[in-house]
Design a protein around this nucleic acid. Structure first.
Lengths: 338, 338
DNA sequence: ATGAAAGCGCTAACAT
DNA sequence: ATGTTAGCGCTTTCAT
């Protein structure tokens, strides 16, 4: 049960532990044949590095912390896959936590990760997070902090996002082009950039087309399937119904659409529907949902790369403030009125 | 930027580091007022334990490794939430990895987690994992290993599962009760218990009702939405079509159902549908999908508890071989022919 | 109830 | 190219 250490390898090889350490780390000043011998012996003896000893010595953990609202969306797990790929390629471990959209849980998670001494922290904010105080230990200790998708416009943050405003604008414009006159917007908590921007893009398109913004047509929810159904019930009771819905995510859009259909509303003829995220669900519902696609995997890779490069002293995050990735509107049956 | 250590606290308090260490750990032989003083000072000075030093000393990491096929299913992220809750309540960290249904990636992940010296490993197997050799380092080092949902019947393993056979049996029986005579089964890789059992439950119900098993009606896929669509295409070409489909997960069932509907097949009148997992999508498709529900969150909590209790020397896993959790059939529109 | 001291396994500055 | 040495911060045995 005894673990093999570099001392064991050293004494077998009759060299010093330092040589073994260097050999294993591929240090330039060790001869190739020595390195080979060391690596062979290590393998043979079943050696594995003791990361604690190493971390203790170097004061680095080779671990990144991640906080996301939830894991169970296609988007998030795809982003995580991208993050993980780059991280493991570079010898970094990941500690992944979920905030469940709660600022309180996010705070706890941040503290836990701080105490785990992660080298860097990657965050997508909970919908009700306002204060960023729980990240101040990271700022203070200069532990790099990187936000993606759900970000906050703070001075020292680095944000990786898509242009939500632009995409919402395009989507709404597209619906207007399909002769929608009364477009309703179902959004998320507007103190979160993604939802604020989608809302603003919607408004922008309306005003550009001289359509007044009707407060009755603007609803803020948690964007769950259930909320979608609630909204549908509300719509069924309205006298002056919308002829289009732009919903800030696909799940909520799908829930809402389904309930309306069940009650005889024709989609898209009577009410057109657009969602956001290009969740697999968007292709399962009928009609297929028009939505905005963005590259979660690539976003994850980028975030991870930025972080690790920074930790390795390259391409410092300090001068970058924001990176905006490409996204695209995918038009499907749910908005094609004709 | 300097970290506060127990030495700093000790010298401030004019006691020895040993006392501070004991005080922080709530050691019985330290007086209450000393403990209070220590805790106060620690707080005041912004002390955080150096887990590496501690791990190095104690040879424990307070970290659990997790390998799951993917994160992006409702089921998995719910299980993880349960695992995480218990883990963090007990001061354990989690390192979560995805195998992407690949035995090869699973192997790499296992090695990484082994080298991270996790105290215990929690696994849900990839669909094509056959050999369990990559876990042998854990067996050898007696690092506890716990499998859930997708397990392997190996001697030294502890498995937490539901009774897939029974649930598949009930589901198929229910369909037969709805006058289905030709029930097709779309399953996953049958070397994985969950899919083998679901297949066997299906066969059991058929044979009990004297319905011959028609090989043409048995398809093995990766259970993705796309595969569901492929199956639908196949069905459309069959002369002697099935009148019911029992699919081993909801996503695939939904994809298949949608494509059939699109091509004029009446669900459930012409073909009834049952899925598995009670994924949110089961309630979004039309008609709503009959499915099997199981308590992911509770499964996660249980798995985590078993592991941690074992690590703490309680209720040893060594005598437990398998824990079977309750599940239930949820009948919805997709199987109600009447 | 508290202290002294050794050592967990590794790394890196400083030799040689 | 390789060796010596001194810790990193904590825990724990043994002593008082």
């Amino acid at each position: 049960m005894k673990e093999v250490t570099i001392y064991d390898i050293a004494s077998e090889l009759k060299v010093s532990p330092a040589t073994v350490s260097r050999g294993l780390k591929n240090h330039p000043s060790i001869s190739e044949k020595m390195k080979k011998k060391i690596r062979q012996k290590a393998e043979e003896m079943g050696y594995r590095t003791n990361t604690f000893a190493s971390n203790l010595r170097t004061k680095r953990t080779s671990t990144l912390g991640v906080i996301v609202p939830r894991l169970d969306s296609n988007f998030m797990s795809t982003v995580l896959a991208g993050i993980e790929k780059i991280a493991s390629e570079n010898g970094y471990n990941l500690i992944i936590t979920q905030s469940f959209e709660s600022a309180k849980k996010e705070k706890t998670n941040a503290l836990t990760l701080y105490n785990s001494r992660v080298d860097g922290l990657i965050v997508s904010l909970a919908s009700d997070t306002v204060s960023m105080d729980h990240f101040s230990p990271f700022f203070r200790k200069k532990i790099p902090l990187l936000f993606f998708d759900r970000v906050s416009d703070c001075m020292d943050c680095v944000n990786v996002v898509i242009d939500n405003l632009q995409m919402a604008y395009e989507t709404t414009n597209h619906m207007i082009g399909q002769r929608c006159k009364r477009i309703m917007h179902i959004g998320g908590n507007r103190n979160r950039n993604v939802y604020a921007d989608r809302f603003n893009g919607y408004k922008m398109a309306l005003s550009e087309n001289n359509i007044p913004v009707d407060p009755e047509l603007i609803i803020e929810t948690d964007l769950s399937i259930e909320s979608g159904i609630e909204v549908a019930k509300k719509i069924l009771k309205m006298k002056n119904k919308p002829d289009g819905l732009f919903v800030a995510n696909d799940a909520c859009a799908a829930g809402c659409m389904k309930h309306l259909k069940m009650n005889g509303v024709k989609i898209p003829e009577q009410i057109a529907f657009a969602g956001f995220n290009n969740d697999p669900i968007s292709q399962l519902v009928e009609p297929n949902l028009t939505t905005v696609n963005y590259q979660g995997y690539e976003m994850g890779e980028l975030v991870s790369k930025l972080m690790i490069n920074h930790l390795n002293g390259n391409s410092p995050l300090t001068i970058t403030n924001k990176v905006v990735l490409r996204a695209e509107l995918i038009v499907r049956g749910s908005t094609l009125k004709k």
